[in-house]
Amino acid sequence: MADIWMPQAIKVDLGDHAPCDPGFPPKAIAHITADRDDATAAHPKDLVPFANLQGFFSGGGKGIAPHILWNPFTGTFAQFFPATSRSKGLFEKQGGTRVNRAGKVVLQIEALFFPFCRVNGKVFATLADTPCKGWSELNGFVRSWGVPDAWPMGHPNGFTSNRSEHIWETKGGWYAHAHVPENDHVDPGSWPEFVATEPFPGAAFFHTGQKSPVIAAMHQRLVTEGCNQYQASDVLDVWEPDDVKSYAAWQQKLGFSGHDANGIPGESSWEQLQVPHLV
């Protein structure tokens, strides 16, 4: 089962959980915080601190809080609602479609960004220009809830609106705030491309002596994630006992336990590991 709390995120549970509507397909909604609207190329403004936005959404901004606040410059996350609950980042018209709930999940992501923000002396015109740190982990978490890597109404490209209630109600995937019925926002303006990852090869693939570049790529990701139980003598591309130990450490990091942390990859943990696709 997928985690309801993103393992990499600071957990700031606001309570007030409410179910989503599984009669609609799973969705993710892309927002930007747009904290300042007076920044220009000629007059950029410093990025608002992450802590300010975390404090806002856990305080006076509770009524419009998303699921996840993401800092694309540092890869820091804060999560305010579990994945199984609706969040509150979308305007809902009285008597209309309850857009915050319209999906098996409706995962709302607020990227800490506004056009022409300045970070460490460098100016960024679009979100896609930023380092997008943490995007692979975020993309993996959203995938684990069955949200496909697709933009049913088109990848965000500029601050323009384009809305279709029929598509919204019938297609799963990622939507810009600018795509959501009953809303008038035009964000996020841009968004990073989906992360190409190696598909899950099945649990039977992972047996003693299996040799594959996929195992080498997995090995490197486990080390990066701080789940390194390897010895210098281990063979990088061969499945060995230390792969089991390292993968079990990854499963435990994700919150799995018992048989679910036995060191044999499962589909959910594999998707969240984000092993790069091998061409």
Rank of each mutant, 00 (worst) to 15 (best):
G154K: 12
P156R: 01
N157D: 09
N157Y: 03
G158N: 02
T160M: 02
N162M: 11
R163E: 08
S164H: 09
E165A: 12
I167H: 11
E169W: 03
E169Y: 05
T170P: 07
K171D: 03
G173Q: 09
G173L: 11
W174N: 05
W174V: 06
W174Q: 03
W174Y: 15
A176V: 14
A176N: 05
A176G: 15
A178E: 00
A178N: 06
H179W: 01
H179T: 10
V180E: 01
E182G: 03
N183R: 10
D184C: 09
D184T: 15
H185E: 14
V186W: 03
D187G: 10
W191P: 05
W191V: 07
W191G: 13
P192G: 05
E193M: 14
F194D: 09
F194L: 15
V195C: 10
V195A: 13
T197Q: 09
T197P: 02
G202N: 02
G202E: 10
A204K: 15
F205R: 06
T208I: 03
T208E: 07
Q210M: 10
K211C: 06
K211Y: 07
S212T: 05
P213S: 10
P213G: 04
V214L: 14
V214C: 09
I215Y: 04
A216Y: 01
A216N: 11
A216T: 00
A217G: 02
H219V: 00
H219E: 08
Q220G: 09
R221A: 06
R221I: 08
R221C: 10
R221H: 01
L222I: 00
T224W: 03
G226R: 04
N228C: 12
N228V: 00
N228Q: 07
N228Y: 06
N228T: 07
A232N: 13
A232E: 13
A232C: 07
V235P: 00
V235K: 14
V235E: 08
V235H: 09
V235N: 01
L236T: 08
D237S: 12
V238Q: 06
V238M: 05
W239D: 02
W239N: 04
P241N: 15
D242M: 04
D243S: 10
V244C: 08
V244R: 06
K245P: 02
A248F: 08
A248K: 15
A249D: 10
A249F: 07
Q251T: 13
Q252M: 13
